[in-house]
Nucleic acid binder design. Sequence first.
DNA 1: GGTTAGGCTTGG
Length: 753
Amino acid sequence: MPVQKVNDSSDLDAKVPSHLQRTSITSLTTTSEPLHRCVKARVVHKGPVISCAQKDGIEMLRAEIKEEDPLQRSAEHASINVIFFGTLAKDFSQSARQGDVVLLADFTIKKSPSFLRDKLHPCQLEMDGKDACVYAKYTYVPLNNLKPKTVVNVYGVVTFFKQPFPSKGSDYCSTLKITDQTDVKVGCNIFSNKLEDHPVMFRVGDIIRLHRFKTDFFRDSMSLLNTYGWSTVTFDGTIDSPVVPRTPSKSFHFGESDIRMVQELRQWAANQSWISNDFTVSLSSVQPGMYFDLTCQLLAKAVMDSRCILLKVWDGTKCHHPLLNVAVASDALEGESTVAKDRMNLIANVLVYDNHLEVARDLKPGTFLRFYNLHTLLQRAPDQLPDQPEHLSFHLHGGTSYGRGLRSLPAESPALQSLKSVLEKHVDLDEYDEVNDGTLLEIWYTPPEAVDAEADTGPSYTVRTCEHNTRQLTLARVKHSTPPLSCHVRARVKKYKPQQLYQCLKLFCSNCKSMKDVPNDSAVAKVFRESAKDSQPCDEQWAATSSASSREPGRTISMHISRDMVGESTHTQLIFVEGTTLDEICVLSQDYKNLVPVRSVSGRMTLMDLTAPFLFSGDKRYYGCKQCSRNTFQNPVFSGVETWDEQTVAKALGVHLMQYRLLIQFELEDQTDTLEALLWENTERFFHVSAADASGSQDLQDKIQTIMDTIQPPDSSLAERPWLDLCLSVYTIKDNDRNKVCYQITNTEVKEE
DNA sequence: GGTTAGGCTTGG
């Protein structure tokens, strides 16, 4: 049996098997009953291991021990020689030191051959590996007292460590540096092919006990390397926290003296400057470009590729920088949905690379963990505009420099207790999506520029053109906001109205704000037919007239022109047309730039009912507002106009021109809500199409249709629809004396290919 | 009966 180690003198006593009888050294004689006796003594001398030539080269070691019982210590023959044989000799040499208290059992008692010389004791004890056993109390060597090439036990406070990493050989390697009250720092390497045998290190300041480590010189200072029968135990370094051993090994010695050692080291370390360095970096205190350790909880994870894994974590505090979200398909995500917490800037998206995947892969959502040497960077999302704030990304780079790594922490770890209490305050967040509680959001929402939707980083089919730098909000948040407000959203189009796109073309009066649909051809044709009934051509002094018979009997088509304009190009002339059908004026308008349909009322030229266009100009038709047009046609003023267009014609005729507008109502959708938003003031910029041009161009109407088919492909699933980055204006209108909140898309354009 | 590492940053 090898030398067995215990930590306390009291443990030594407890080790004495019941069949052994404790004997004092002074009472030992050659005639003593040798079996089942034991002595407890202190090592006063330990000789080297020598090879005994007389006994087939067996190894042996001589030691002198002295009675430990205080009443017997000063008596005669209180010291005695002990000879250890074989493996016990080597074992004792390595594990026992001068000054150690040992318990020897089942020895044999022989006459001492040296008694006449040393006067020590008439007997000597012989210990061989077959029967005898030694229990030795561990002693710990202060770090300033290490001798090279010895096997020692030490205690120390950890000033640096790396989590176990694969060495170039066959083992994992843990590397650490420790110090103690002597202020000497000692490096230490631990090799073992079993990860579970490595010390459980949580953070700098932890206390570690090393048993059976071999000392050696390396670069002018002492270093430690685990050797046969080695073990480690670690403890939290926090003063006054319970001294709970963290050990990977199943059996280990731990007693009162360990508690004392740990407490003394804690006390000493608390006054050292190196111990206090930022232990407590939380998301709320993270700055860009930092390297720091983060204690947090894993909520969800996703494998990005063979060299990168995404860990979505939180610590219950809110970052003051907008956090970069990493787009992941929901089916690739393991763990809970973090949509609500992402929105509230509570989630750090940590990208874990390369060698750290081995640890990260096995982490289960819900686990508490700690990152070492986590790196923060400001980063621009792929489609982010220059005027938006950059977002904070988290990288656990490959390699182990600076202790870079990560590990899970047991939920009962003292370092986690404050974190857990913070997290518990957030339990109601999980129900946020159901209750849509705006108050809760108000409380947690502070970073003005922050908060991103889940798919923040993907491409957008649109681009915002606004100069302002307002915050991006979720639709749920927009709905809870108080108008007036400008904001940015990222959404998809669930539906839109009108489905018949030609119906989105509207006539709008800027004066009375009335809006009406563009009359259809049959309504217009009817006005023409009725106007042509009075076939008597009108006769105005200011006009030159030419007339022709129509195909229909009794109907005359007349064209009038201001006498001032006679001889001008037909493309610059303003021509008044009387007696035509709608079809006929359409044919004429291909040759004449500006045609104003008129009718005759008792020989006087009069505008048609304003249901019909008051001006045909090429393919375009212009309408006047029935309510706002003053009929000044009786005395038209044509002078002072260089070129005739819809504006100058309208002014000359006293017509209030109605504007073409495009109006579409979108039903927007993101992860949080849906919202109906109008595309109205901004439509022309949105589509890069003029409404007036679109009114007369099938090509342009097709262009709008194509864009809409991209935004919301017919019969498409949500995922097939592109994300739109939109600038949104939130405002109120009076609707039957009640305030109604409206949402309008502004400052947004479809990206040009 | 003993290689490996023996701290020292940043690419994604």
